[in-house]
């Protein structure tokens, strides 16, 4: 089980395009990946759930990862978030 916090920097928040890219990135791993915001949790592999979080610029997301490839998934997601959100 891995977890880390990421603060959204994109001024538009998690809008459709990065949400789609995030879902694609997360779906490449076997591990379960969830995003948590204000007590709401969303499966990072589900686009409606990710968009439904309504994460905006400045919001801090907690990312939980658990499964066989969790280490790898964490590095990949960190890199993805820094680059795109």
């Amino acid at each position: 089980m891995k977890e880390f916090i990421y603060t959204v920097k994109d001024p538009l928040g998690i809008h459709a395009r990065p949400a789609g890219m995030l879902v694609k990135a997360a779906s490449g791993f076997k591990a379960d990946i969830s995003l948590e915001l204000d007590g709401k949790s969303a499966d990072a592999k589900r686009i409606f759930a990710v968009m439904g979080l309504g994460a905006k610029c400045g919001h801090s997301l907690k990312i939980n990862i658990s499964g066989a490839d969790e280490e790898e998934a964490m590095h990949a997601l960190k890199e993805f978030l820094e680059k795109n959100l």
Partner: peptide, 8 residues
Amino acid sequence: LMLEDADY
């Protein structure tokens, strides 16, 4: 992606 969404 929406058409493939597990919740949907």
